[in-house]
Design a protein around this nucleic acid. Sequence first.
DNA 1: TCTGGGGTCCTAGGACCC
DNA 2: TCTGGGGTCCTAGGACCC
Length: 435
Amino acid sequence: MHQADGSGQLYALVDCNNFFVSCERALKPSLQGRPVVVLSSNDGCAVARSNEVKALGVKMGAPWFQMQALARRHGIVALSSNFTLYGDMSDRVVAILRDFSPEVEVYSIDESFLGIKGMDGQWATPSAMGQAMRQRVLQWTGLPVCVGVANSKTLAKLANHVAKKQPDFDSVCDFSSMTKSELDALLAHIDVNEVWGIGRKTAEHLRRIGINTVGVLRQASVNTLRTHFGVVMERIVSELHGVSCLGLDEAETPRQQIIASRSFGAPVMTVDALAEAVSSYVARACERLRGQGLVCGAVHAAIETSRFKESEQHYANGVTVPLHDPADDVRLLTGAALSGLRRIFRAGYQYKKAGVILMDLSPAAIRQHSLFDSVGMGVQSAQVMAAMDAVNALYGRDTLHLGSAGTQSRWMTRSDNRTPLYTTSWDELPRVRAG
DNA sequence: TCTGGGGTCCTAGGACCC
DNA sequence: TCTGGGGTCCTAGGACCC
């Protein structure tokens, strides 16, 4: 029986191996064992690689045209991406994981965090539970996964990394059952840039001050790190010590922005051609907007020439067009995007990419209760309550809070992390209303 | 010739208010 | 009008994630 230590949390990170490639293989078993890449739109570059392809040195994001020779030599199979398939397979994996724990955070299309504290009773160890997950997902979907277990999400990510890289772990690695010296020995050999939240820039910076491995990072002074790198690093290091700072985000939070953008197969020169692309992007973004019951307050339009052509001057520009009223009307949003496009269009360039971003999103239900016009003290409490009820029924009871900030009365704030000081909890609502 | 498409969070700096 | 502190709000840009 594994021992429950004092930290109180236990996370499993379940991550599908080479997800897009594995989905294609599940559909077409003859691809098993062969080198396979899945390509981005326009078959531009590799967005997923099988182990065989990784072994050939092909990097993530490598342009397809640059590996033609290699592909011919080794018989690499290149497939166009099929996101409908991947989304469907992802849903099936998540459904299986929910049988193992009710606490599931779907982190991305191919990975989920599970809260497994107290859920592993029917297995001898967390590792045994991980093996059970892995076998069931493989059996029911054909997808191979790796499982990392630890007392914090950041450590669980690292454990997953070890499970993937070190075959003797048999695809499941549990840090929580290791002794301190066992864990130290493992972390001493892991590069800092493998840590969740430490990217290229920060890793370079860390290396410059002599911090190369996770082991060294864990020993570094928290105060020094905090002054050099800010609060994010502070949190990362706490997590690396097994102190859980990042909780499980189980509820589906509404998007803050919706992006639709594409690179063009062939360059585009005219404003008309760009307008056509932009219109179609708005239409797709708008569909997602309404699907989530949101309205948008501003539309951002952007265009760009090729970043890779040295011979031509690079031009990239974008502009945000505010709307008079938040809306989800496709004609309104298209109009805004096109007026933005006309402002940034410059003739004579070969455009390779365009996109739109729907910004300043809010639940449409607020509109239905005319709350946008009624910010301030004069508003009827019943009206506020009705609107909040409607919104919270739609998005979960914590979507909106009533609160106030200083002398400025602020009837509603979205309960995102940026404004925690101004929100009061749902339970305090009646008191705030009475005041 | 051919180089993806989404997202989030944090910080710094300026405008503005009392 | 000047000086100054304390504070909020908004935005752009950077870094990161998959």
